[in-house]
Design a protein around this nucleic acid. Sequence first.
DNA 1: TTTTCCCGATACCGCACGGGTATTGTCGCT
DNA 2: AGCGACAATACCCGTGCGGTATCGGGAAAA
Lengths: 291, 291
Amino acid sequence: MDLRSLRYFVAVAEERHFGRAAARLHMTQPPLSRAIKQLETDLGAALLDRSPSGVTLTAAGTALYDEARTLLEGADQARAKVAAAAGPGTLTLGTLADSSEPVGIRLAGEFRERHPGVRISVREADLTDPTTGLRAGLVDVALTRIPFDTTGIRTHVLRADPMGVVLRADDPLAGRDEVRREELADRVWFRFPDGTDPQWQAFWSGSAVSGPVVRTVHECLQAVLWNGTIGLAPLAHSFPEGVATVLLADYPPSKLVVAWREDSTPPLVRSFVELAVRIAGLDHRETPANP
Amino acid sequence: MDLRSLRYFVAVAEERHFGRAAARLHMTQPPLSRAIKQLETDLGAALLDRSPSGVTLTAAGTALYDEARTLLEGADQARAKVAAAAGPGTLTLGTLADSSEPVGIRLAGEFRERHPGVRISVREADLTDPTTGLRAGLVDVALTRIPFDTTGIRTHVLRADPMGVVLRADDPLAGRDEVRREELADRVWFRFPDGTDPQWQAFWSGSAVSGPVVRTVHECLQAVLWNGTIGLAPLAHSFPEGVATVLLADYPPSKLVVAWREDSTPPLVRSFVELAVRIAGLDHRETPANP
DNA sequence: TTTTCCCGATACCGCACGGGTATTGTCGCT
DNA sequence: AGCGACAATACCCGTGCGGTATCGGGAAAA
């Protein structure tokens, strides 16, 4: 007898219908039927009277329903008590200035729901530090992009986004479906300041040695609009008026990762990472397979 | 957070030692460590301070310990309440006069432990009915041996025992390690009464058409001692003074099964069957692999 | 200081279980 | 009798749990 079975049973008891209960539990009917039967076997008593015109509780079933409610209630209170005893936790999250994207939104929501007492302080880093202050200890966990030097840092890929070039809307290439890198050979690229992580620098601006130095997304867009520079960006979110994006056909995709220090294993960090991975996985699978 | 994790945590909290706690939980230390860490991740708080000189509880840990105790206590009470509401259950068990064997003993014990309120009434059947009254509805579940006509009856093999021949202790063959069937061709075999299940009859007494008719194990042994008849028995338990057993080399093993009517699915029957299968499985695996 | 020992953590593996899809069975109802 | 609704069954597959083997690190002993 575990809490999961009890949750299942409560759902069926309240809906008096396996199908509806399954829907409420975000699952399908057969595993639910099986779980309830296992619970009955485990307890050694019939809990439900199955008739085609609905399901009714036996005496044992009503007894279990009350008990299960109390137990589940107690479990929730236990969580709360533990959270209270642990004191107000804090998690500092570093982002790469694009935390407003879907996965970040859901992640923040679910994390707050799971750990209501935890204060999340978000630090938005500029483009010059792909670790967003992780190695410096300024943040506990980061949503960022690879590649960069990951010694001492562990990462888990959440998603891969195709890369695109960012142009003025009136650029001759602006209407194209895609471009290749060689077509941009004569353009002016931007650069990151000296001292930026070499891998990171190489990914974003190639071997450019001239061109404007940018530190933030904003500066980069300004350079595009005013200098005619080209920008580079993962095609994951929308861009402001006046600029256009074109898919870069021969460029490796940019991978969004969750990153944390490998010596950093406090539960909140682990919980955040676990949540991030799960949600990212769901994002892929949730696309309904329409027949 | 499920009840299993809580049980684990309570054990560790009380033992203040992962190894001892694991032993108490009848498991090994690594999965226990992992489970506790998962629990910490799930709750988002450190529960234990691991120091080489023992394990101590954090504030969150002590809070969870109290809550967990209450929850587990509540779960036990829930079981009791359900059992009470279900009314005193009854399970009638049919056996083939050799229920005193190891698996039967353990089975009865564990079943009583799991379902304290249930009355088990045992019906010992004689050798003439391999179903021990199952088909007639006299018992709910049976510990018996195949083969017999199983239409309408489901069985699950618990164990296979080699067959042996039962002789007077002063029989010339009595000292042998094993005999073959042809060496017994001139012996007098016993028979079952007319009307006995044909498969059953064929297994136990071949095509014998003469010889004494026996109905019980006792009668069979009497026939061996007084008539010089030979008996046939699975070599699973000990035999009384005065008779000897010799392995029958070319005889198929006798399979001990748990049997129930295929239309009979009350939870207590399912629970009994499940227990029987699990215990029989353990019996095999529990033989320690000495290196 | 170096060695040893204890104990928890990690790595990896195999199997069982929980979830899924597809199908069957079985009642009421027309 | 035929149909529709609903739970049960059959089967598949991936995850998770428990196992064994090994590592790492701190404390005690030499």
